[in-house]
Design a protein around this nucleic acid. Structure first.
Length: 308
DNA sequence: AAGACGAAAGTGGTTGA
DNA sequence: TCAACAACTTTCGTCTT
């Protein structure tokens, strides 16, 4: 098979399935490849870490290194995360003196031909920066870059800040891949206020005719649990509580983050790993008051005895 | 003293006329 | 466009452990 290289997360040329070694959610190295469904998922928390993992490799198989080098006819895979999709050729070879300088200059002119290309380069770097702070997997970064490109093609950027569009496409991508980050989390690391991101988010959904399914509180559980240093058994317990809550229609109209927080709070106590409301509040971003009201509702309706 | 509780008032978003 | 509304936050005094 093709030789594998160890690559940094930031290396856009090798970010597919092979480059992912641990779950961005719970940091488990226990990743399972499902070639039938073409996805890479975490055995610990069930998160789908990458999709379409087999589409992007070479379509041939090499049985020895000689065959491999003969069949390797292209360089890097195409990626939306480089402003020219990674298809340009860098001139770094043996041309000397003025010739090389001229050629380089031309290349730069061609690559960054106008202001919109320049701003796109900035947008991609902004998406990468935020995604790496939020420790988001490559597939989400790719999706966000693609969305940004779409928005640009439809001329939706005009009149809005690059930062707000970048933040919004990242938020949408997280939602679409069911690895939700809260608006507050995106707002914290963005240059733009939450209000502006939310407005841009709705605008993009409308203009690009995108659909996002409502966030499930369950999607937040693994990450919040790992922030609170709670183990997999407690995660399962919290998810179980949320499932029962959904069946009993205790969740409609309620914020998913508050529900997740309350379920985790209850699950931790039941498992003898008490976390204070303050700690859960800090980890999840909902107030202690909301955790209290949610957890009262859940424990009463589901007949859960919560003794401290 | 820390943690939990709950009342009251304020905020921002949604909905429907 | 505006008012009504529910969810959520902020603040704070009180109770419990």
């Amino acid at each position: 098979m093709t030789p594998k290289k160890d690559t940094d997360e930031g290396n856009a040329n090798a970010d597919y399935g092979d480059a992912i070694r641990e779950c961005p959610e719970c940091c488990s190295k226990n990743l399972i490849r499902d070639y039938e469904k073409a996805e890479l998922f975490c055995k610990e928390c069930g998160l789908i870490v990458a999709e379409n993992i087999i589409d992007l490799g070479p379509e041939w198989r090499a049985f020895d290194s000689d065959q491999n080098s003969r069949r390797t006819r292209v360089g890097a895979p195409m990626t939306y995360r480089i402003h020219d999709k990674g298809l340009s050729t860098q001139v770094t070879g043996s041309l000397t003196g003025r010739g090389q300088q001229k050629l380089k200059k031309w290349q730069q002119r061609i690559q960054i031909a106008n202001a919109s290309e320049k701003s796109f380069v900035f947008a991609l770097s902004e998406i990468e920066r935020m995604a790496s702070v939020l420790k988001l997997p490559p597939n989400i970064r790719e999706a966000a870059s693609m969305l940004y490109r779409k928005a640009m093609k439809k001329d939706l950027i005009r009149g809005r800040s690059i930062e707000s569009i970048a933040a919004a496409v990242l938020y949408i991508s997280c939602r679409q891949y069911c690895v939700p980050r809260t608006m507050a989390e995106i707002g914290d690391i963005s240059q733009v206020r939450v209000k502006e991101i939310r407005r841009t988010y709705r605008y993009l959904l409308r203009e690009l005719d995108l659909k996002v399914i409502p966030v499930s509180p369950v999607d937040f559980v693994p990450r919040f649990c790992s922030l609170l240093d709670l183990n997999g058994a407690i995660q399962s317990r919290a998810i179980e509580i949320l499932k029962r809550a959904t069946e009993d229609e205790l969740t409609s109209g309620r914020g998913p983050i508050g529900l997740a927080a309350a379920a985790i709070y209850i699950a931790a106590i039941l498992s003898g790993e008490h976390r204070t409301q303050k700690k859960v509040s800090d980890a999840t971003g909902v107030t202690e008051v909301t955790i209290r009201t949610r957890y009262k509702e859940l424990s009463e309706h589901l007949c859960i005895e919560v003794l401290r």
